[in-house]
Design a protein around this nucleic acid. Structure first.
Length: 672
DNA sequence: CTACCTCGAGCTCA
DNA sequence: CTCGAGGTAG
């Protein structure tokens, strides 16, 4: 059989074969060839691509075996935010959800879509001309991590779609690991004496966070899609059911458990049914989701805060386990608040090993009458913080006594105070209390505050314990030699810390204000105060009336601010930070009402910029309130095109989007 | 709150 | 090899 084969043709043919087999295997669940034969085809294509690099396409199935390791994951913004869902923990809450919908919509009948809530990771997939071009994690909902290389190795996810799809759209779904894949993975790890994963969700999350996608490729991950993100309005079907249908037609995997249901009673029955079948499913679910089917009705319902009003997650009851309460520790927080923490005999519940659980406050302990030595029921549902639900009273040691809440701070012995009406007790020691010192310093150095690199919690503990520092001003007079007495502190680490401190000196007023750790002055309030007053001097000397003029600031916060700035000790530390350490910032220029002139404008950057890196440009734009995203859509306001701009430029031209060159960008940044 | 990944650096032992 | 810091996820 000696004939000349056109390599291009051969590659195309192999790809088509492989994609077809993928499809019959994953979507139709009807494998036509053995795994070995499949691997053979894949290897053939790999060889062909290796010898003819020009044949490699973005959607080639060989990408499923992994790409070269990344340095870090890039950040990508979600054009349409990825929201969370409101939860219902019982049928009443589901009925309430339906009632509100009925009330607002006034329809004869309402269709819901019911689907299993998979316990995995939410992922956004971007398809351009039917090819998977970007995959991102949920992140904070606004932007997540670019995990495209890893996602490409997930066999359930088509790299190329078939059919009639819009040129650019976003699919959302859940990546997860099937129970049996998880067991196989752990069994293999066990044989090799490696560490085991705690549960399928963590295994999936861990696999996806791998910088080397070859490792991800070796972990059988699965995917089901459940919705859309960015999607051209003209192409969007009228409802969720139809959307899922076309997704399926294009080759995207959709769970076969999803149903359209025309009453809330039906939804509740669906939940009961799935709950009973939960153990027989090959994947973990933590509940079911009900969504209003019709998109136009969804629009009418709108959103509350960070969740849609047209969907709800009915969660399965929290898992419970019995364990022994070994001890109750009292933690002292930054503000002196005493928080009792239950130390528990390790118990596996809800997929993790729980050893600590907060008891919130004294009232909570009294209400539940939790005593050291009790057998207690620990509860954990999904991302819910574990809690001590109740005591198993018949197992209580008859000689036990109620927990004695300390009257003195366990750290500094100062009197414990409890304000009438407040449920928290506080240590009155203020900054003389080492615990409060430590927490204040940790807060000061934390990422959202001064962001001192190299100064972690363990190091702060050591520094305070060894009397090297007592407050944040002391940090900046630390000498290299002093650090050498500390554990795990070599020359390099010490230098890194000093450099981290140095770097933190250039800051902003808002950041500094937040870092001071004034009660009730969080990130947002600090920013508002900085914008309103412009300088620290103005805030320091402001009277109550002036403070109250600031949005977000009420009598309580105003009082905290004034008290803070009245204490000589605080003023001294601030002076030292500014004079001695040299902490500096540019005062905010007042007057421009709109410090965010580009508020809500959506920018996309493409091509190479000369004067700044893309990240810098992004930061600068965001500083002015703009939103910087990665892909062009109808919503994009400006495209900044550098050298060698490619398809994005074309697309922007097509959509009639304003295009800026680098000079125009600089101009805009200077004078928005 | 727990679990996971990655990195740099310190520690330990040859 | 182990630890801490810093990041992610639910």
């Amino acid at each position: 059989m000696n004939r000349t084969i056109d390599p291009h043709e051969a590659a195309e043919k192999l790809r088509e074969q492989i994609n077809r087999h993928n499809r019959s295997y994953h979507q139709l669940d009807d494998p036509q060839i053995s795994d070995a034969e499949y691997d053979l085809l894949l290897r053939e294509l790999q060889i062909l691509e290796a010898t003819h690099p020009e044949l490699i396409t973005l959607d080639s199935p060989t990408h499923r075996v992994g790409a070269p390791p990344l340095k870090i994951f890039e950040e990508v913004s979600h054009v349409v935010p990825m929201l969370s869902l409101n939860n219902a923990f019982n049928d009443e809450e589901v009925i309430e959800f339906d009632r509100k919908i009925q009330e607002k919509l006034d329809q004869d009948s309402i269709d819901y879509i019911a689907e299993p809530k998979l316990d995995g990771l939410a992922i956004s997939l971007l398809y351009q001309d039917g090819v998977l071009v970007q995959a991102a994690t949920r992140g904070d909902g606004k932007s997540g991590e670019n995990v495209t290389e890893n996602i490409r190795t997930v066999r359930d996810i088509p790299l190329r779609l078939t059919g009639d799809f819009p040129p650019l759209f976003e699919v959302r779904g859940e990546v997860f690991m099937a129970k049996n894949s998880f067991e196989k993975l752990n069994k293999r790890a066990e044989e090799k004496g490696e560490k085991l994963f705690a549960n399928p969700r963590n295994a999936a999350a861990g696999s996806l966070r791998q910088l080397d996608s070859k490792i991800t490729a070796s972990r059988a991950l699965s995917f089901y899609c459940y919705g859309h993100g960015e999607f051209p309005a003209g192409n969007l079907p009228t409802n969720q059911a139809a959307l899922l249908k076309i997704f399926k037609k294009w080759g995207l995997p959709v769970s076969s458990e999803i149903e359209t249901i025309s009453s809330i009673e039906g939804c509740i029955a669906y939940y009961k049914n799935l709950e009973s079948r939960r153990p027989t499913l090959d994947y973990e679910i933590d509940g079911v989701v009900f969504k209003l089917n019709d998109f136009s009705l969804q629009n009418i319902m709108g959103f509350v805060a960070r969740a849609p009003r047209w969907a709800i997650a009915r969660k399965f009851p929290a898992e419970e386990a019995v364990t022994k309460l070994l001890d109750i520790d009292i933690q002292v927080g930054r503000t002196g608040a005493l928080t009792p923490v239950a130390r528990l005999a390790p118990v596996f519940v809800g997929g993790v090993t729980v050893t600590n659980a907060t008891l919130h406050n004294l009232d909570e302990i009294r209400r539940k009458d939790v005593r050291i030595g009790d057998q207690v029921i620990v509860r954990r549902a999904g991302d819910v913080i574990p809690e001590v639900a109740r005591v198993v009273l018949d197992k209580r040691n008859p000689s036990s006594t109620p927990f004695h809440f300390p009257e003195q701070c366990p750290i500094c012995n100062s009197t414990v105070e409890k304000m009438a009406g407040e449920s928290v007790a506080r240590c009155s020691g203020g900054l003389f209390c080492p615990a409060q010192q430590k927490e204040a310093i940790k807060h000061f150095a934390s990422r959202k505050a001064m962001d001192v690199d190299g100064l972690g919690s363990k190091l702060v503990e050591q520094l305070v314990d060894q009397n090297l520092i007592q407050n944040v001003a002391d940090l900046y007079i630390l000498q290299l030699e002093q650090l050498s007495s500390l554990e795990r502190m070599g020359k390099k680490s010490a230098e890194n810390l000093i450099a981290g401190l140095e770097k933190s000196k250039q800051t902003t007023l808002a950041t500094f204000l937040f870092a001071l750790g004034i009660r009730d002055v969080g990130e947002v309030t600090a920013q508002t105060l900085a914008n309103h007053f412009g300088s620290l001097e103005a805030i320091k000397t402001a009277d109550e009336a002036a403070l109250l003029e600031t949005a977000d600031v009420g009598p309580v916060v105003a009082k905290h601010l004034m008290t803070f700035f009245q204490q000589p000790h605080n003023l001294e530390i601030i002076e030292r930070l500014r004079q001695e350490a040299g902490i500096r910032w540019d005062d905010v220029t007042l007057g421009e009402n709109s410090s965010q002139p580009l508020q809500d404008k959506i920018f996309v950057l493409t091509g190479t910029l000369e004067k700044f890196s893309r990240d810098q440009a992004k930061k600068l734009l965001q500083l002015l309130g703009a939103k910087v995203t990665n892909s062009i859509s109808r919503k994009t306001d400006y495209l900044v095109a550098g050298e060698n701009a490619g398809s994005k430029l074309e697309k922007a031209l097509k959509l009639d989007i304003t295009i800026l060159d680098e000079n125009q960008l600089s101009e805009l940044l200077r004078k928005p």
